[in-house]
Each structure stands twice: as structure tokens, then as C-alpha cells.
């Protein structure tokens, strides 16, 4: 009674009322999230829808999510016949794989040294890494191009990969991750006779899988979709990665055949989407940094 007198305005909270309030809250949150999801997915869905529409329907004024006439087979056949899509995809895999492997081989030992070893100049080096994060890829493009041209390496896989071998972002990400790795385990490893090199690869790296998966997604997405650098160093369509290949494809015979173009785009996007879906859990773990326990 005393409590009621103190809060006369507060209505008694019944189970039904609190359940209703929760339901309304949940509905609201989901409505907002759903709106965001629709906004982000719409272009992607539009691409998929366009890829199964006949040319006549693509430019019709009405908006429909399903074509009146299913034209998917024809569009995809044209895309696969006219452009070496699988070749582009293979180039993409070689490019992304090559870059990622070297990035990991370089960045993991660097990050370990910055996170766990004590040596003079460590902080200066780390500041340099942070500064490196601030330099956009366009800045060193010119000298890199000239250097590759002088070495006669233009129009090779290597020329596409080389500028990205050293990823300051990877060093930064892994350094933050390794810092949370318990010092005691590293000490125990040293007492057990494990060399520093093996500590990095046998003890610390296995625990960094979430960070590695997260970084792999970032790296693969960035380089799979990169048009800028391949456009500069590659002129041979046989070496073109997906976006550059799409460009060659759009330029040539297909021209304004948007059905075939979107079909090609759908085919070239698929590997990334599938890879992300597989690594999704690890990716989220890595980004939220709840790795070592």
C-alpha cells in the first residue's frame, strides 16, 4: 500500500501488459532492421531479377519482381557463351588467393612482434603502421606503375598482386588481436623450448582463426571487386579479374544487353557471397574480437 501511495500514477504491472510491451518493442526493432535490410538488398535483388527478364521487360515502365516471360536461361547462356566468365572468376581466385597468402605470411609475424616482443623503436614502428593506414592506394599508384613497367612486369598476375602484399590493415588487426593473447602461454612455450618463429605459427596463430577469417573476407572482397589497379596494369583480357572482365564484356558485343550483363554479374558475385556465408560465424567473431579464451 505504501508503495502505491508513493507512485499513484504507476498502473499495476500485469504479466499480460509486460508481454504486450515487449512484443511492441520487438516489432518496432524488427521493422527498423527490416527496412535497413531491404534498402541494402534491393540493388542485389534487382540484379537477380533483371538477369532473368527478357530485354523488352527490362525497360518497361512498370516495376515487377518476377518477369512475365522467364528469360533466365537465355541470358545466362549468352553471358557464359560470349564472355570467358569462368576465366575471370579463376583470375579472381588466383589474385585474391595470392594476395591473401602473402599478406598473412607477412602480417602475422609483424603483428606478433609489435604486440608481444619488447624492442627499441617498437612504438615508432607501430605509429608508422597507423600512418600507413591513412595513405590511400591511389597515392603510390604512379611510382608503382613506373617501377613495374621498368621491370617489364606489366600484364602479369604479379603486377596485380604486388602493391597489396603488405597490408598495414592486417598488421593492425592482428596486432590488436594478439595483444589479448595471454603472455603466460607464450612464456610457457619459451620454457618448453619453442622458438619464437614456431610460437607465432604453432601457438599464437591457431588461436587467431576468427581474426584471420575476418581479415580474409575483407581482403578477398576488396581485391575481388577491385577495378582500379587491374585497369591500370592489365590490358590482356585473359588476365582480367571479374570487374575488369565485366568491363571488357560490356564494351564488346553485348553492349546494352542488360539481361546478359546482370547474369554475368550474378555469376561473378556468387563465389564471394557463398564464401562469406561459409565464414560468417568466424567473421563476426573476428570483428567483435572475442577470440582467445
Amino acid at each position: 500500500m505504501a508503495e502505491l501511495a508513493l507512485h499513484p500514477a504507476a498502473a499495476p504491472v500485469t504479466p499480460a501488459r509486460s508481454a504486450l510491451r515487449r512484443l511492441v518493442g520487438l516489432a518496432l526493432v524488427h521493422a527498423i532492421l527490416l527496412a535497413g535490410a531491404v534498402f541494402m538488398l534491393a540493388p542485389f535483388v534487382w540484379m537477380l531479377v533483371t538477369s532473368i527478364k527478357p530485354p523488352a521487360e527490362i525497360f518497361s515502365a512498370e516495376i515487377s519482381l518476377w518477369p512475365k516471360q522467364f528469360y533466365g536461361l537465355q541470358n545466362y547462356r549468352v553471358a557464359l557463351d560470349k564472355a570467358p566468365l569462368l576465366r575471370f572468376a579463376l583470375n579472381g581466385v588466383i589474385l585474391c588467393g595470392g594476395i591473401l597468402v602473402v599478406q598473412l605470411l607477412v602480417a602475422i609475424p609483424c603483428a606478433y612482434a609489435l604486440a608481444k616482443l619488447r624492442f627499441p623503436g617498437r612504438n615508432v614502428l607501430f605509429v608508422l603502421v597507423l600512418l600507413g593506414l591513412c595513405i590511400p592506394v591511389q597515392v603510390p599508384a604512379m611510382p608503382l606503375y613506373i617501377a613495374l613497367a621498368q621491370l617489364g612486369l606489366l600484364n602479369t598476375y604479379f603486377s596485380m598482386m604486388a602493391p597489396f602484399f603488405l597490408s598495414v590493415f592486417a598488421i593492425f588487426l592482428f596486432r590488436q588481436f594478439f595483444r589479448s593473447f595471454p603472455d603466460d602461454i607464450i612464456h610457457a612455450a619459451r620454457l618448453d623450448g619453442v622458438s619464437e618463429f614456431e610460437i607465432v605459427w604453432r601457438i599464437v596463430t591457431p588461436s587467431a582463426w576468427p581474426a584471420i577469417a575476418a581479415f580474409s573476407v575483407f581482403s578477398a572482397v576488396a581485391h575481388w571487386n577491385d577495378l582500379y589497379w587491374p585497369l591500370i596494369v592489365i590490358s590482356d583480357a585473359k588476365l582480367a579479374p571479374p570487374p575488369l572482365g565485366m568491363m571488357f564484356f560490356a564494351d564488346a558485343e553485348t553492349g546494352s544487353n542488360y539481361g546478359a550483363l546482370t547474369a554475368a554479374a550474378a555469376i561473378l558475385t556468387a563465389p564471394l557471397v557463398i564464401a562469406f556465408l561459409i565464414a560468417r560465424r568466424r567473421f563476426i567473431d573476428g570483428v567483435t574480437m572475442t577470440g582467445v579464451k
Binding site: 595471454p182 612464456h187 601457438i203 582467445v292 579464451k293
Partner: peptide
């Protein structure tokens, strides 16, 4: 050495 946190290799 035996550590307070045991320091076992987690993987």
C-alpha cells in the same frame, strides 16, 4: 614452470 592461469595451449 607452472602458471597461475595454467597457460595450456588452447588448441
Amino acid at each position: 614452470m607452472v602458471f597461475q592461469s595454467y597457460a595450456l595451449y588452447p588448441h
